[in-house]
Design a protein around this nucleic acid. Structure first.
Lengths: 232, 232
DNA sequence: TGTACATCAGTGAACGCGCGTTCACTGATGTAC
DNA sequence: TGTACATCAGTGAACGCGCGTTCACTGATGTAC
């Protein structure tokens, strides 16, 4: 019951963290495909086989990094939202702040971003552990829209009949309480946001968009509009 | 001056094509990171060193595949647009047809799509040869908007002052003749389109969107709206 | 049309590299009595 | 408090693998006279 851990347990926690930190550094330097257990061990002054005391395989280490990345961007989004909320910000301000926070996180951690929103790592398939952390950012956005809906409301045109059943199902699954047209718009807006960030990060904006801050700020406003958030 | 080629030249063309075809097949099976000259050679019954007669390095082969992929999706977009145009389709119909064609191409060639719109291949940097083919799809969309602008016009609200200079520059650079707010909306819509397709392809829609056809059809309509294309 | 030489596709062996993972081991830390 | 045993982190060697690239070579195709 004691929170005072033995030397063994504390060492284990520290070494596990050191391995993940080093792996993250290599990720940032080389990308996920180049991440190797041997290189991490080498950098830590351990022998490669020693890592197997901490992670049963390279894929498990990758999974840990993916979960951490989702948690990291999720926390950044929650923090941004809470900051705006603390000064009494309206839903629209919260929305654009969260968009900006996700982009800022991506620009600071490009390889971690690639890991979770880029092309899948070949030969790796994400286990269930990643599902919950993966939805933290989306949950922040849903929370904002719920507040807005409960307040002045969200004005969106009705859905075409073909999409209504799907939108109702999505709402029931993960956005209980929102109007179905808002749920549909939210999912599209979320894909849009990640598309914008990916274009910027993966080089698609090279020779196309130069003033990226201005462009993104405008796009985030359009996104807010697309999910029905009023301007004031 | 004769178009009748010698055996040597014809053989070279055929073998080059066979190498690219096989590389594309391996790409589809394993992804870009796993693409290896040795595996391609093995599959073709050649010795690995023989490939160096055709491609000076693995990166050159990758570049060739990237250029082909851009050309392939560009051609698909152009074909879709031409088909709708041939039956007298309005700009909005052309727009949604092109969006659908890009998505269909991506679903058919997921790894080629990853190659051009996914996270960059580690250690590879795209040379200038890829710039022109990369813009074929965008050029189709620009063409549609030009027609629409010349016709009934495109109704979009004016840009915020912060984005006007950038939008004017973009217009001058690659979308001459369009109103600046349309150019800005087009770039955002293009990122949105790729974001939607990437989410679908990279697994982000798993357990989220089930009726993907309906969702995408609706999103493509929203995209048309976002660039100012009238419904009729 | 025939011969001599140049070009070039493809071979096979080799270099040097890094990888993930297993396994028997040593020695330090923790636990039960 | 002291001893005997169990647990576990880390070692070092090894396995078997695939990779990109170079190089001297053979033999077929093309070219000039």
């Amino acid at each position: 019951m004691s929170t005072v851990r033995g030397a063994r347990e504390r060492a284990r926690i520290e070494v596990t963290a050191a391995i993940k930190d080093e792996a993250r550094r290599m990720l940032a330097a080389e990308g996920a495909a180049k991440l190797s257990l041997r290189a991490v061990a080498r950098e830590l002054g351990m022998v490669s086989s020693a890592l197997y005391r901490y992670f049963p395989s390279r894929d498990e280490l990758l999974t840990a990094l993916i979960v951490d990345a989702y948690d990291s961007v999720g926390a950044a989004a929650e923090r941004a939202d809470a900051d705006v909320l603390a000064v009494g910000g309206a839903p629209r301000a919260r929305w654009t702040a969260v968009c900006a926070a996700v982009r800022a996180w991506a620009l600071e951690h490009p390889h971690e971003y690639s890991l979770i929103y880029g092309s899948p790592v070949p030969g790796y398939s994400a286990p269930m552990d990643t599902v919950a952390p993966a939805s933290r950012v989306a949950n922040v956005l849903i929370g904002i829209l719920r507040t807005a809906h409960a307040g002045r409301g969200l004005a969106l045109p009705p859905l075409p009949a073909a999409l209504r059943p799907e939108a109702l199902r999505m709402t029931a699954d993960f956005a209980e309480g929102l109007p179905p047209e808002v749920t549909a718009a939210l999912v599209a807006a979320w894909a849009h946001l990640v598309g914008l960030i990916s274009f910027e990060l993966f080089g698609q904006f090279n020779r196309v968009v130069e003033d990226r801050d201005a462009f993104f700020a405008h796009a985030a406003g359009q996104l807010a509009h697309a999910v029905g958030l009023p301007v004031v």
